[in-house]
Design a protein around this nucleic acid. Structure first.
Lengths: 134, 134
DNA sequence: TACTAGCTTGACGTTAACGTAAAGGTCAAT
DNA sequence: ATTGACCTTTACGTTAACGTCAAGCTAGTA
């Protein structure tokens, strides 16, 4: 096991282009092995790519994504200072995430309100002109 | 009441630049009144700006934001077709938002896991070398 | 009246996140 | 041996979302 993937295999699996994978490598997000000159991606790369794309969906920049992903790395040397800094980063990031979730919930609430108005209008309107499609 | 705002007042209140406000106008997000040539912003603009910035925080493009904001507009003519289309848009958008919320929750979970590891390491490590700050 | 503060419209510059084309290497199959 | 399917690097192009001048209008104040 511990399957490996060519660049086009990985690209297809995640529905991105090979250009994107090379670009993410430049950005320090991916770091595939090499077989000769060709890139060979493993599990670690898949995990990091998944995290990067998730970060992007939430509106983070690739630099942000890289920083976030680095939090997942084995805790470097277990040095107390590093651990404390990691804790701080986690708390910061959590606040950002909670903020985004509040934004989402507020938006969902708005959508529900609009939807209610919609159905209300549809109810009264369909009585007056059932097949109005002008 | 129904206060109005100059461009710099509104910019300061929302912590954006005047350039941004003019740009959003080009994008069809804001449409202030004019007093002579100067822009005069009202409540409607404030609401739309707030919605736009919220959308941006969630990773939507300005074009997306504009589309979303337009959902809030008084339902045009109450025509059945338009109402149905609005319903569809709302449902679509809701799915996107729910997806993002799942991403957030997954990330929060990850953060909690890392934090746990952190504290675990700190517990054992502080016994071995209480003031290790190298 | 001259000055300052704040407004306007261009218009070119910048950064992020890729797209896209060019030119060429490699390896298996025909 | 050449074709085709991949892979590589290099490098210029593109879009979104503004930043940053430049040049000029305008209203209130010293």
């Amino acid at each position: 096991m511990n399957r490996t993937y060519s660049i086009s295999e990985l690209a297809e699996e995640f529905d991105v282009t090979t250009r994107t994978l090379r670009f993410y490598e430049d950005k320090g997000i991916l770091s595939p092995q090499r077989k000769g000159t060709a890139r060979v991606y493993g599990e670690r790369d898949k995990v990091r790519l998944r995290l990067a794309l998730r970060g992007k969906r939430l509106g983070f920049s690739l630099d942000d994504c890289r920083e976030i992903i680095e939090m997942y790395d084995p805790i470097a040397g277990n040095k107390v200072r590093q651990l404390r800094r990691l804790q701080d980063k986690i708390r910061e990031h959590r606040q950002v995430l909670l903020g985004k979730r509040e934004d989402i919930d507020a938006t969902l609430k708005n959508m529900a309100e609009i939807e209610a108005l919609c159905e209300q209008h549809l109810a009264t309107n369909s009585n007056n002109s059932p097949d109005n499609n002008s």
